[in-house]
Design a binder for these strands. Structure first.
Lengths: 239, 239
DNA sequence: TTAAAAAATATTATATTACAATATGGGCAA
DNA sequence: TTGCCCATATTGTAATATAATATTTTTTAA
């Protein structure tokens, strides 16, 4: 996705409205202002407003009909796997509970992806996993940030699964990881532990041990899940 | 989704172009005709063309920039979880191999969803599963179609999981099931067997047996997977 | 008085035209 | 040859007009 300052007018309006809709600014039923009102509100032409409306409709957030106006669609119709929608969600809602849902998804997807990678992964795809892994090691030893290579590691496994539906979830997983990082400690000695656990997954994939790769990945994500559930319990206690 | 005849102009054009793009009519790099050409080709105004372009851009299929024109995005950027995109895919590509990818996804998602439903499913949500199940039984005994209640059964479990990301995949799963039905035999005696296997899943969920629900669901999908792999082997043999 | 029909109205849908912004490629000058 | 500038093609934005659609109000007739 391009930087915000590079977006054109209708894309910027799409962003604004998308965020507002997901933040619940507009009531679900009747919903948004009319096109005319939006024009004056943003000081732009109807063309730009309509294009923004069309883009949001394509993402399942709204629908518009003559005489009725523009109304917000029920949230279960929102396309949550759209990168923009996902981003807007995290900007608006407290993320611990959403993060748990993310981890449940990761627990479903990633172990299977690892197993498929072990079974069918091409040598190049598996080499790509190793590249990311080595970058993690490097970061762990040189006190650098482990985040970027961590994301690349998981993305590379999705690609190696050979299933385009899994790989399609790379933004989803990246977002989940980015949010996770905000809650995890960065104790220096634990970085190497994390890298080592990732290496076990890699070796299982490389050796074609599907079950082992699957279990190791499940273990890794389960640890994160346990940590988040602890955090949720803490926050509920203090509330 | 509304019927085609009920769609407005820009939505119809979106459909036409979407299908054409996914069918590979336009080369990936340079890509589509200019807006002006599309106008004359379809005999419509630029407004309608631009709205269609914006909707396709929102689904990740294309991008457009001044002077460069409209170009097809690489397929890994297409939003495959968009219902329209999914539909266009199945209209264009031979479905057996795609179906296998679908089943791999289902094998990742649905067992986990069943486990979550067993752990956290609300009584109403679980009752909804039973409604679908009874309809399946009915269909099996009265020689009716088992398809619709089958879809509803799986959808109800996704809903009962309490995870909105799982429930969001209901259209995805439905599409996968619909395609599967085209390949499966409808031997009357096997219908009751299928219904019985579904009932085992339901009972495990109702009793809160997460692991059992998970395993039964995995078994169910694995059977479908084995069948499809057999079909794929057959078609490769004859080719 | 009530119900059906018709008219008024508000809003989105489509069309048309004009101009602005932008990036590509070619030509011109140093 | 290299670098700059300008012509040009294409999308981006704007403004305005008319059509389609569905709601509300009014009118009409039983």
């Amino acid at each position: 996705m391009a930087r915000i300052e590079n977006l054109n007018l209708s894309q910027r309006v799409t962003n604004e409205l998308g965020k507002a809709i997901i933040a619940g600014v507009y009531g679900e039923g009747s919903g948004l202002p009319t096109e005319a009102q939006l024009c004056t509100e943003y000081g732009i032409s109807r063309t730009a407003v309509r294009e923004a409306v069309k883009m949001l409709a394509a993402k399942g957030l709204i629908s518009s009909r003559p005489r009725q106006g523009i109304r917000v669609e029920p949230p279960e119709n929102w396309n949550l796997y759209d990168t923009s929608v996902l981003g807007w969600m995290f900007e608006s809602s407290p993320s611990l509970l959403v993060l748990k849902e993310f981890l449940q998804m990761r627990l479903a997807i990633e172990p299977q992806a690892a197993a498929l990678a072990a079974k069918h992964g091409s040598p190049q795809a598996i080499a790509q996993i190793e590249v990311a892994l080595n970058a993690m090691d490097n970061a762990a030893q040189t006190d650098g940030s482990i985040h970027q290579p961590d994301v690349e590691f998981h993305t590379a496994i999705l690609l190696a699964s050979g299933n385009r539906f899994f790989y399609q979830l790379r933004d989803f997983i990246s977002t989940a990881l980015n949010v996770s990082f905000q809650y995890t400690t960065n104790a220096k000695d634990s970085l190497q532990t994390i890298a080592d656990e990732h290496r076990k997954i890699y070796q299982a994939i490389k050796n074609g041990e599907a079950e082992r790769a699957k279990n190791m990945m499940a273990y890794l994500i389960d640890e994160a899940m346990a940590y988040i559930e602890l955090k949720i319990a803490e926050s509920e206690l203090s509330a």
